[in-house]
């Protein structure tokens, strides 16, 4: 079976890089459709570069990136993205922020004006699902950081993307809010079956959410280990206190420690 996201032997150098050193080198990564993949690694290892490559924001110097059966030569459009910074537009209400992707991506772009009510209903449904029911009329800056991050998840999902790219979306949140959002993303994934690539530096987060965890080496990044997480789903937060869970986290930690040592 062909992978949904297939990054094959990719080496990427940013055009603006002063030292001309590659951000990732000989990187190979395959994620199946509907799979929840997590990428962990020491800081500055090029995790975010993987996101940019998979969404067509950057193109590899060497190697190929295939998403949804097509080689990526332009922005992929079937992806939703969320970052550590929620980047909501402050002059739009939360609801209008959610509708923003629909103003860009086809076929919604040409349908939006005439089917506004349908899309608003969809946005409100999503908001309710992340626990923000009735908050759509507020401006993002009237929401707390955790609420903004939920809204940013909704925005990433509003156009029903087949691929969800998460770049440390929970990094700036407090521990309790983070756990809440883990459960939200877990449920959304279980329900809608999209493919997820989560970039994180939190091993417990990666193991709790993902089907497979990829460890990256220090810069220039490549995949040094791949761990299948065979914990049964649906997973409860309690699972984090089981020996099986801790063993996986511990094992991954070993890989990261090696990667840091090698750097």
């Amino acid at each position: 079976m062909q992978a949904f996201v297939d990054i094959h032997d990719v080496t990427h150098i940013y055009s603006g890089a002063e030292d001309g050193a590659p951000a990732v080198e000989h990187m190979t990564l395959a994620v199946r459709e509907g799979e929840f993949a997590a990428i962990v690694g020491p800081s500055g290892c090029g995790k975010s570069t993987v996101m940019k490559l998979a969404t067509g924001l950057q193109f590899p110097a060497k190697g190929t990136v295939v998403v949804g059966g097509e080689e990526v030569t332009k922005p992929v459009k079937l992806a939703g993205m969320a970052f550590q910074n929620p980047v909501m537009l402050p002059w739009r209400t939360t609801l209008d922020n959610l509708l923003l992707p629909l103003e860009i991506v086809q076929p919604h772009r040409s349908r939006l004006r005439r089917h506004k009510a349908e899309y608003v209903a969809r946005a409100e449904h999503l908001l309710a699902e992340v626990g923000l029911a009735g908050q759509g009329a507020k401006f993002p800056w009237q929401l707390s950081g955790g609420m903004q991050q939920r809204a940013s998840l909704c925005r990433a999902l509003i156009h029903e993307p087949k691929l969800l790219m998460l770049d440390e979306p929970f990094g700036a949140l407090d521990a309790f809010t983070r756990e809440e959002l883990w459960c939200i993303i877990r449920d959304l994934h279980a329900e809608q079956g999209f493919t997820v690539i989560l970039v994180t530096h939190d091993l417990r987060e990666a193991v709790f959410l993902a089907d497979r965890v990829f460890c990256m080496s220090a810069r220039p990044g490549r995949i040094i280990a791949e761990r299948h997480v065979d914990l049964p789903r649906p997973r409860d937060l309690e699972i984090m206190y089981t020996a099986a869970f801790t063993d996986i986290v511990h094992e991954l930690r070993g890989h990261i420690a090696d990667a840091r040592q090698a750097a």
Binding site: K52, T55, G56, L57, K74, P75, V76, K77, A79, M81, F83, V87, L100, P101, I104, V105, Q106, R155, A156, H159, M165
Partner: peptide, 8 residues
């Protein structure tokens, strides 16, 4: 990035 990834 969010917008460009959508093809903006």
């Amino acid at each position: 990035d969010v917008l460009r990834a959508l093809g903006a």
